[in-house]
Nucleic acid binder design. Structure first.
Lengths: 152, 152
DNA sequence: CCTTTTGGTAAACTAAGTTTACCAGATAAT
DNA sequence: ATTATCTGGTAAACTTAGTTTACCAAAAGG
């Protein structure tokens, strides 16, 4: 059975890559696990590409593909499966301009809200562990990284 | 062509999940791109599961599988391809105890060193952007997250 | 009009993982 | 010691998720 690592040989020596990657992955795993436990059992890792901030509601399939860094075809398959599971619908024609628009169903919106809740819980826990001030500092620093052109 | 996103709708509203995930992914992509450009052209994303800290040298295949959170079979295929490309060898019998041990070849070690160099460059850039003090603070906070039992 | 561009789709292929099963050497038990 | 069990590595079949290549319909623009 696949499981995650847990023997950190000298945290002090770790470079920014691992320091960011490992907690990010841990959060992803937890989100999926709790989502499944909350009744959204069909959702697995690739679906997260659709569910993650800022969510697909109101967007075009092509736009979502770009955001997720994948081909339109791959995104479309994902949307198809999510549609089959009843999480969203792809309506064609937004009135003007050709194409389709994705909208959450009630279930889809519930799942998206659940992700948000889980993340709030995680933030709560981290905040309790690090202290509210330090956690806020961490988020602020990460936001500065984002704001700068450090990430492409 | 798959490309990454770049329209941040309100960084202030982002939760810790996205704040960690996006830069972590950006770093991964950059490492692979620069590795390829530096002559290690066969290396692609899945190989990173082997190359990433603290590296495979001296470890058992099963241990590496555990660290990477994947099955022994999947890891073994990865090691096989890396062996084919001349990055490492799997010697059997470390003297005592049955099994195999992975060791870098010269080329493998060079690739691993290159990853380290790239990460040092990235740290340099981030440090220049955020200021050395703030960047150190960011790393320190992430290290505290790691040290705590917040991540599984 | 007719041509080009844009968004979405479909089919074929490839990559990368899982499950299931198996085998060899080590460890332990009676 | 001989057998039973456990551990680590491997192999085969299957599944999933992505890519490429190709195509089609609607818009846009000369």
């Amino acid at each position: 059975m696949p499981s995650s690592q847990k023997n950190s040989p000298a945290v002090k020596d770790m470079l920014i890559g691992a320091l960011l990657r490992v907690p990010a992955q841990a959060i992803q795993r937890r989100i999926i696990k709790e989502l499944n436990a909350a009744g959204f059992e069909e959702l697995s890792m690739p679906h997260m590409a659709v569910l993650q901030f800022p969510g697909p509601d109101g967007s075009r399939p092509g736009t979502l593909a770009g955001r997720a860094g994948m081909s339109k075809q791959a995104m479309n398959r994902l949307l198809g499966s999510l549609e089959d599971f009843g999480y969203l619908v792809r309506n064609d024609a937004p009135g003007k301009g050709r194409g389709r628009v994705v909208h959450f169903t009630k279930r889809g919106y519930a799942a998206y809200a659940k992700v948000h809740d889980i993340l709030r819980d995680i933030e709560q826990e981290w905040s309790a562990e690090l202290g509210a001030k330090d956690f806020a500092q961490l988020k602020a620093l990460l936001a500065r990284v984002w704001d700068s052109r450090l990430i492409d």
